[in-house]
Simulated scan of single mutants.
Amino acid sequence: MSADHSALTFAGHVAVVTGAGSGIGRATAVAFAEAGAQVLGVGRREAPLKETAALHPRIGVLAIDVCGEGAPAEVIRTAVRRWGRIDHLVNNAGATAVMRLADTDEQTVTNLLALNVVAPSLLAHAALPHLRETSGTIINLSSTYGHRPMPGGAHYAATKAAVEQLTRSWALELAEEGVRVNAVAPGPTRTDVMLHAGLTPETADDMYAYERDRIPTHRIASPAEIAHWVLRMADPAGRHATGQVVTVDGGLELI
């Protein structure tokens, strides 16, 4: 689970991590806590969040749908009320959808945009006054498919392309204010996102096998490997890096 960022690099810092009930979000919450930060793990489902919180005493949780009315502001208020500051916002919560153009469903497109684009924007807006005070960071989670085609998943890929442009544009807007904005773009990673997209475990395994054969390193990433790069982009020692999209996909984007 650890991202191997063992020194207390983030002692005294506060990190908000969305989608913390499983996968990359859980691994990121644990990695920040192990590196000294107080962490607010956010997600829709209370039971998985409690499992995340049980992994480290510096993790607190908030069960809330970040797409709900007023939810982004409530997330930020909760963190500030509890710890008095925010240093890092990790916009990890997201959804995918396997949907060809011929099968396009309006509600699916709307839901993807709401969770993958609108919610991170409103969370960043709510956190910004606090990030200005701490010279903090925003780390957005994109995907290797944010900058390469994804047949059968065009709308998901489009939302991640939007995330990458938000990252670059916000970085330019906020550079003079000391707030850094970067993104991590994972390739195929072993999480439950495919199951939430409606695939059966067997179909998900087949997709992972297909991707593994295409990836130059012939590996599917673990959530902890992605969390490692999230913390690298948030590290105060990297204060000259902003507007970057770091792709962690075993070389998949190169082919």
Rank of each mutant, 00 (worst) to 15 (best):
W229E: 06
E34D: 14
F32R: 04
D87Q: 10
V179D: 01
S6R: 13
T52F: 10
Y145V: 07
V61C: 15
H130N: 12
D105L: 05
M150A: 15
A54N: 08
T200H: 05
T200L: 04
R100E: 11
E177T: 05
G19V: 01
S6Q: 12
P72R: 13
T52G: 04
G23R: 04
A221I: 05
D4P: 00
L252P: 05
G70H: 11
R85E: 15
G60H: 13
D213C: 08
E164T: 10
S169T: 15
E46C: 07
V16N: 05
C67V: 06
G19M: 01
I139S: 04
G238D: 04
N92H: 02
R81E: 15
I76H: 12
H5T: 12
A37F: 10
V245Q: 07
R45I: 06
P72E: 13
V42K: 08
T217G: 00
H240P: 00
E51Q: 13
A53I: 00
A15W: 03
P236V: 01
W229C: 05
L231Q: 01
R44C: 03
A35M: 08
A15E: 08
A3N: 00
A31C: 06
D105F: 04
V230R: 02
C67G: 12
E69Y: 01
G68Y: 08
P57F: 09
R81F: 02
P223D: 09
A162G: 14
H147R: 13
G153H: 07
V181L: 03
I24S: 00
N91L: 08
G25I: 00
L49N: 04
H196Y: 05
I64H: 13
A79P: 11
G153Y: 07
V61G: 11
E74K: 14
R180Q: 03
V42P: 05
